[in-house]
Write a protein that binds this DNA or RNA. Structure first.
Lengths: 109, 109
DNA sequence: CTGGATCCAGACCGATACTG
DNA sequence: CAGTATCGGTCTGGATCCAG
């Protein structure tokens, strides 16, 4: 496991980025184009989106498919690895949403 | 959900920090003292550890108990919320560890 | 449309020294 | 032991302009 102390360490490295988990989430219903992703994520800049997508490609979580067209059309989709990871992340998101009141309460205490 | 676009967004905010998931992990077998945590995490500085623990207290994930002793003794433990979250994070860690070979392969490709 | 390149402010984080 | 305070370098991330 190289420099990782445990699996969780590696997992944080894979999706700890500010946008990566959300990118997977947005891809849950199928491939999306670059600008479509950008609109879905609203607050992400093109620069960040490019950067995070590149890292996720490099980690084997997403796939980039460029149609060789003009004007350009590029679609991003999840790999098998990405889909597996998202499947584990969904319960975390559901839990967070369900416990939002508790978290709010803790924060305002 | 205030500024959060979905539950996953909130979850990333809760444990997206570089050390938070690992702190929960280290607390899985019971309360730990400040320096003990620091040694377990190895590469974390006292400053970072303090900071992340504070945020996690504020979010209701960990509890800080100070025995009013000299020399000081402070123990950190998980709240119920923290334990629930860790339970969901463990499969993610297990998955990452199991798929480490695939990830390595993707990275070196 | 899908980016790349550059600039810049602020956040992040490690090292060090200090306190109760 | 369990932190706090400060300094300074690095990295993040937004804004802007440019290219194929």
């Amino acid at each position: 496991m190289d420099g990782y102390s445990c699996g969780l360490d590696l997992a944080v490295d894979l999706i700890g980025g500010k946008w990566k988990a959300l990118i997977l989430w947005e891809l849950r219903e199928g491939p999306q184009r670059f600008n479509s992703l950008g609109r879905s994520l609203e607050k992400v800049s093109a620069k960040m989106l490019t950067q995070q997508l590149k890292e996720m490609q490099h980690d084997g979580l997403v796939l980039r498919h460029s149609y060789g067209e003009v004007p350009p059309r590029v679609e991003y989709s999840m790999t098998d690895l990405g889909q597996q990871l998202l499947a584990l992340l969904e319960p975390v998101g559901d839990w967070a949403e369900a416990n939002y009141p508790s978290i709010r309460a803790a924060r305002s205490a």
